[in-house]
Amino acid sequence: MLKGSCLCGDITFQTDGAPQGASMCHCSQCRKQSGGIWSSAYVAETDLTISGDVLWYEASQSAKRGSCPRCGSYLFWKAHDEDIISFALGAVDGPTGLELTKHIFVRNKGDYYTIADDVPQRD
């Protein structure tokens, strides 16, 4: 079981599911919302229990982003047409036991850093 929370603790989450797709997103939306690269993994939406009042932002016609209305922590990403939900790996309490599987949207990465690992990259 993984458990996590926002910075202030108003939003908590947990999953008994096996998280998949641990990735680092370099898209401009994630960079703007998180202040850098956003790391996440996903589970079936039914396997994630969220407590607290998440503020959902319709970032595009295809997905929404969930954050804490009090401290602003960016915690969740959910495509409208999928039954999975991504959660922030940085918000997990303690070790995740996961390994990064990919970097995504690398064509949009900031010019101020270099991806220096051997993890696969997707444009």
Rank of each mutant, 00 (worst) to 15 (best):
Q61C: 00
C27T: 04
V43C: 08
G21E: 04
H103D: 04
A59E: 06
D123T: 10
D93S: 14
G9K: 12
T46M: 09
A22E: 05
Q61M: 06
S5M: 11
K3Q: 14
G52V: 01
C25D: 09
L48S: 09
V106H: 01
A18K: 15
F13I: 06
L100A: 09
V106Q: 01
Q20M: 13
V92I: 13
S40R: 03
A59Y: 00
F87S: 03
Q33T: 08
L98G: 03
G9C: 11
K32T: 12
K78P: 02
D53W: 00
V92P: 05
Q121A: 13
L100I: 07
Y42D: 06
F87Y: 07
A88L: 00
L100F: 04
A91G: 08
G17Y: 03
G97K: 09
C30P: 05
K102P: 01
K32M: 12
C68I: 09
K64V: 07
P19E: 06
T46D: 15
A91W: 09
Y113R: 12
I85S: 01
I50G: 07
I104Q: 03
A59M: 01
W56L: 06
T49C: 08
G4R: 13
A59P: 00
V119E: 04
E58M: 08
S67M: 15
S51G: 12
L7Q: 10
C27I: 01
N108F: 10
A18T: 15
A63T: 06
T101V: 15
S51D: 14
S62G: 05
Q121I: 04
T101D: 13
L98E: 07
H26Q: 10
C8W: 02
Y74G: 07
N108S: 15
R107Q: 14
T101H: 08
T114K: 14
I50M: 04
A41V: 08
Q14M: 11
V92M: 11
E99C: 00
Q20Y: 00
I84H: 09
H26S: 04
H80L: 13
E99V: 11
S40G: 06
I37D: 03
S34L: 05
Y112K: 09
K3H: 07
P95I: 02
L7N: 09
A91P: 07
A116H: 12
H80G: 00
W56G: 02
P19L: 08
D53H: 10
N108K: 10
A116Q: 11
A41Y: 09
Q29M: 14
R107S: 15
H80W: 04
